[in-house]
């Protein structure tokens, strides 16, 4: 977070203060009315692990099957796209709706190059698991250190 230094001789300071107050007001407003249309959290949430030979990405995609997910991979990034539709059953009244429908697109930069041809993915119990084998040149090699 930035800290603001107060300068009593700066006539523009009042504008800065005004802007911050307005930003704050909009954030509050967003909390009240904007939660359905503007997800403030990232979606889906992802985990990335490094197994030396590959990267393993996991993403939480409850309610989505293989056909609802569009996964694309380049040597250095991975992009997930899709849509989760809100499926309110017909003839029912709503008590609460916390599982929002949304469109998502999320890119993850990979820390090293991967072998795009050998990437594999599966969906199980609402969890997407992508295995991204590293590019041969980017795999760690252990070097034997010679002693005299």
């Amino acid at each position: 977070m930035f800290s603001y230094i107060r300068d009593p001789y700066d006539p523009l300071q009042a504008f800065g203060l005004f802007r911050r107050r307005m930003d704050h007001l909009f954030r509050e407003l967003d909390d009240v009315v904007g939660t359905r249309t503007q997800p403030r959290e990232v979606w889906p949430r992802v985990n990335l692990a490094d197994t030396k030979d590959a990267f393993i990405l996991q993403a939480e995609i409850p309610g989505l099957g293989v056909e609802d997910i569009d996964l694309s991979v380049t040597a250095e990034s991975l992009t997930l796209r899709g849509e989760r539709k809100e499926k309110a059953p017909e003839g029912y009244s709503v008590h609460r709706q916390e599982r929002r429908g949304l469109r998502f697109s999320r890119s993850v930069a990979l820390p090293a190059r991967v072998d795009v041809e050998r990437v594999s993915a599966e969906v199980r119990n609402g969890l997407l698991v992508v295995t991204l084998p590293k590019h041969p040149e980017d795999r760690p090699r252990s070097i034997t250190i010679k002693t005299n």
């Binding site: 009244s93 709503v94 008590h95 609460r96 599982r99 119990n125 609402g126």
Partner: peptide, 23 residues
């Protein structure tokens, strides 16, 4: 977990997101 709850005359319908959980 996030939950949806619906109701009609016959009963309630509950949905809960539990990604990564085994049945």
């Amino acid at each position: 977990p996030p939950v949806d709850i619906y109701e009609n005359a016959e009963g309630y319908l509950v949905f809960a997101d539990l990604p990564g959980v085994e049945g």
